[in-house]
Design a protein around this nucleic acid. Structure first.
Length: 877
RNA sequence: GGACGCUUAGCUCAGUUGGUUAGAGCACCUGCCUUACAAGCAGGGGGUCACUGGUUCGAGUCCAGUAGUGUCCACCA
């Protein structure tokens, strides 16, 4: 090794940016259509590129990046499709407001007006740090490049999809009750409405029956809508109320008379037995209105104010009107009573304004025919959710789905490609403005003012990003994609819609697996939100601890689908682990001599065989777990192996050889340490890419671990079961000696002399050096029989050996007796349990043989140990 | 109202088809600046796995019920 290696004593993540640039320069993240490799396509939810990365995104990114790197190293052509589309960017109000203010734009078709380009150009100014943040997190995706190309494709796909849906009769325009946000002045889909409990009242008041001295009492939570009532409904089977059917009642505060209709919708025995019907402002009432041919009278306008149909109340805000209506009813003596009432009120998920149900002309996607194949795809396991329980949520939604309202009255978004003939009003749906009206021959058209729901374009993401509607090579190669990674909060918005869109336009599922992870909460378990102000900027964490530390802390201890809390303590622990890896690597690298040959040694010693056997198991388990998307388990296993087995034991055990004056021995140790370290670095690379890359580049001739390395594989040659077992015994012995020393209060610097009686003498002779190095033993004398020892002694008993320590070296006899008595109790308990199991006929008859043998062996060992301990106690007495 | 989770050490959480003495991090106690690492090393204490019952040779793990808690969906005026 020629290069001068310098490593700081403490890990410092400042090299991260340099490593990132190296990856970009060498195009490490590019995926190509490659017939020799199997594609593995990963999708991610759309982060808002002009906004800030939050912990949820950081988790998304980390999970996906781990999978991408793992798959790349495993020989796949791994591509990930980042969902940065106009949909997400359009939600960034700052950008669109800038356009409004500085350019005077009032209508923006984001697919065609260069919206994306300008948004990207402005992202720096407007705090849009997301790309910077994603880069710093180590995201293996060229964001700036992807976003531009995808923007183009996305627009084409949207037009194509809309026209195809329409031609198949799957899109229609019509009057329906929709959720309306008076603040945003737009329609909302059902999924965009959040319900929260509010304290309100239930108002009871009377509708006088026309021509009779009678009245019907109704109850409502929204008195102001009575101005739009067009009927009162009672149940025809209700004996008390049925008599009113066909009669008219006077609608107070108006000059209208409205009919009483009979309908099952009104539940017998519930409330007053009669329901006011307001078809324009309640979905159930609207349906009922259709059944009874009732007129639809809107009384609330788009801004939440009472309109001209509200008579004297016109112009009032709907809540002011509510008070006025109640007061006026009271004046007329029609108000019966007011009861406090808690009920759920729909709120706009974006602005929080109370949502009004209003009837309006909107565009819809007919869901019934689209949902059926989408349900089938999951039932038939063409798509699988991980964890599986989320399939139920999906089915529940899909099976009860209503038509999807896709028009929005926002002024930015994809404009609906519907054109109306100025002459005859004919509707033409086409990718571009038609020249001639097919009905009247007119040549002037105007385009529908509405734009599409942002999720309409997002639903096309799996193929629009790959070039659809063109039949590109990428589309053929990468579609269907392999796995979608997202949080459970987005199943309805996005996942479900991608599934039916993919089936409709590509005739195939968009992905075969949906990996659902939880959301990141704050340290108190609260959802991170802007209004609470408890969100944590990942960039601050990265500044403090480094990106690898953040990634590792997000990846450790998470179970698929479960929420996780963010605490600095976790990140600190991850950082400490990285520091440990750094120092272990530093130690190994520092010891690589100029002429050392790092090729794998042809002859292995016991410790080598032990670590290789352990490493082998780790490789197997980590690979299996990553393939199962058990990222948390994989990370935890690597943490444990690296720290405990490699650092605490193997490195320590290799020191005698490493410091040996025999050059060959030193070289052997260095080669083995390096080999194991390299395997560890490869396994850890997906989790902590920066530091592994940095360390690797310090000693490996060819630089990049990401580019040059294959994922480690299980090697049968290294399944050294016997050595593994011996060394586990040795570790046990060393721990027992240390334990005794600590309990006896032996100073750490004090070397003890020891007599050793071994079960496997050959092995113990070779291992004496480890007792010296790791257990503070000064000199080891082997004995065949305890009688050979002339001093008084006490013993440390384990399965592979008894170690006799001369009493002169120990301090407290009484304590030693206590310790031995405790151990005897332990051994006795073990014997009792094993005997119990083995005398249990059921166990012996039904348990697997391996387990029975295990138990027998355990019993023998424990009995042997007990005997030795009892002897020892005798000695001490 | 419907569905789905969760309850394991003081705190935050792992625990993959049932099978050694139920694990980790943080916190705590004791002793160490041992020539990679004090962001460290060695040792230690701490758990009736919410409760009750069942299946089984064997249950933290499977089944049923109870209690507490959380999320999603629907929403009856």
């Amino acid at each position: 090794m020629e290069k001068e290696i310098q490593m700081e004593k403490t890990y410092n993540p400042e090299f991260e940016q340099r490593i990132y640039n190296f990856w970009m320069k060498n195009k490490c993240f590019e995926a190509h259509v490659n017939p020799d490799k199997e594609p593995f396509t990963i999708m991610m939810p759309p982060p808002n590129i002009t906004g800030q990365l939050h912990m949820g995104h950081a988790l998304d990114q980390t999970v996906q990046d781990i999978l991408t790197r793992f798959k790349r190293m495993s020989g796949y052509e791994a591509l990930w499709l980042p969902g940065t589309d106009h949909a997400s960017i359009a939600t960034e109000v700052k950008i669109v407001e800038k356009m409004k203010n500085e350019e005077g734009v009032t209508k923006m078709d984001v697919g065609r007006d260069g919206f994306m380009e300008r948004a990207w150009a402005w992202k720096e100014q407007y705090g849009g740090r997301i790309v910077e943040q994603l880069k710093r997190l180590g995201s293996s995706c060229d964001w700036s490049r992807e976003a531009f190309t995808m923007d183009q494709n996305c627009s084409n796909a949207v037009l194509d999809a809309f026209v195809k849906y329409y031609n198949k009769g799957l899109i229609y325009r019509g009057d329906r009750i929709i959720n309306w946000c008076p603040h945003c002045k737009t329609a909302l889909s059902d999924a965009e409405v959040e319900y929260n409990e509010q304290q309100s009242n239930l108002w009871y008041y009377r509708y006088p029956v026309v021509g009779e001295d009678d009245y019907i009492t109704i109850a409502t939570t929204r008195p102001e809508t009575m101005l739009g009532d067009t009927a009162v409904a009672v149940n025809p089977k209700d004996e008390k109320m049925a008599k009113y059917i066909g009669k008219m009642v006077k609608l107070p505060l108006t000059d209208r008379e409205i009919p009483v209709v009979g309908d099952d919708y009104c539940e017998i025995g519930f409330g007053t037995g009669a329901v006011k019907i307001t078809p324009a402002h309640d979905p159930n009432d609207f349906e009922l209105g259709l059944r009874h041919n009732l007129p639809v009278i809107r009384v609330i306008d788009d801004g939440g104010l009472m309109n001209e149909n509200a008579g004297a109340y016109q112009g009032m805000d709907r809540l002011t009107c509510r008070k006025a209506v109640v007061a006026d009813l009271e004046k007329l003596g029609l108000l019966e009573k007011i009861e406090p009432y808690a009920h759920n009120v729909g709120e706009c998920y974006r602005c929080g304004e109370t949502v009004e149900a209003v009837v309006s002309k909107q565009w819809f996607v007919k869901m019934k025919d689209l949902a059926a194949p989408a349900i089938k795809a999951v039932k038939s396991k063409k798509i699988e959710f991980v964890p599986k329980r989320f399939e139920k949520i999906y089915f529940n939604w899909m099976e009860n789905i209503k038509d999807w309202c896709i028009s929005r009255q926002l002024w930015w978004g994809h404009r609906i490609p519907a054109y109306y003939c100025d002459q005859c009003g004919e509707t033409v749906v086409a990718k571009s403005m038609p020249e001639v009206c097919p009905k009247c021959g007119g040549t002037h058209f105007h385009q529908d003012e509405d734009v599409l729901d942002t999720w309409f374009s997002s639903a096309l993401w799996p193929f629009s990003t790959l070039g659809y509607p063109r039949k590109t090579k990428s589309l053929g190669y990468f579609y269907p994609t392999s796995v979608l990674v997202t949080g459970y909060d987005i199943i309805f918005f996005w996942v479900a819609r991608m599934i039916f869109s993919g089936l409709e336009f590509m005739c195939d599922v968009p992905f075969s697996e949906v990996l659902i992870h939880g959301i990141v909460r704050d340290s108190q378990g609260r959802k991170m939100s802007k209004s609470l102000g408890n969100g944590i900027d990942p960039l601050l964490i990265i500044d403090k601890y480094g990106a690898d530390a953040l990634r590792f802390s997000l990846a450790t201890g998470i179970a698929p689908g479960s929420d996780t809390r963010y605490t600095d303590a976790k990140t600190e622990s991850a950082r400490n682990f990285i520091n440990k890896l750094w120092n272990a690597s530093r130690f190994v690298i520092m010891n690589i001599g100029k002429d050392d040959d790092l090729t794998f040694p042809s002859k292995l010693n016991g410790a080598d065989k032990w670590i290789l056997a352990r490493l082998n198991d780790v490789i197997k388990e980590v690979t299996i777990n990553l393939n199962k998307y058990e990222i948390g388990l994989a990370a935890a296993r690597l943490y444990d192996f690296t720290w405990t087995e490699y650092c605490d034991w193997y490195i320590e055990m290799s020191k005698p050889l490493l410091y040996s004056k025999d050059k060959k021995e030193h070289n052997h140790a260095v080669a083995m340490l390096t080999y194991t370290l390299t395997e560890i670095l490869k396994l850890l690379h997906p989790f902590i890419p920066y530091i592994t890359e940095e360390i690797y580049s310090k000693y490996a001739e060819k630089g990049s671990i990401l580019m040059k390395s294959d994922w480690p594989s299980y090697n049968k040659r290294f399944a050294f079961r016997k050595e593994e077992k011996n060394f586990e015994g040795l570790r046990e012995l060393i721990v027992a000696i240390r334990n005794t020393r600590a309990e006896m209060g032996v100073a750490p610097s004090k070397r003890l002399n020891a007599y050793v009686k071994a079960t496997d003498k050959k092995f113990m002779e070779k291992s004496a050096q480890y007792l010296e190095k790791l257990a503070g033993i000064g000199s080891v004398t082997f004995v065949e029989d305890k009688s050979e020892i002339t001093e008084r002694w006490t013993a440390i008993v384990t399965n592979i050996a008894e170690v006799m320590i001369p009493m002169g070296d120990l301090i407290d006899f009484e304590k030693e007796r206590e310790r031995i008595t405790k151990e005897i109790a332990q051994a006795e308990a073990e014997i009792k349990k094993a005997k119990g199991l083995l005398s249990n006929q059921g166990f012996v008859a039904k348990a697997p043989q391996k387990l029975i043998d295990n138990e027998k062996e355990k019993l023998l060992r424990a009995e042997d140990r007990l005997q030795k301990l009892q002897d020892k106690l005798q000695e001490l007495a």
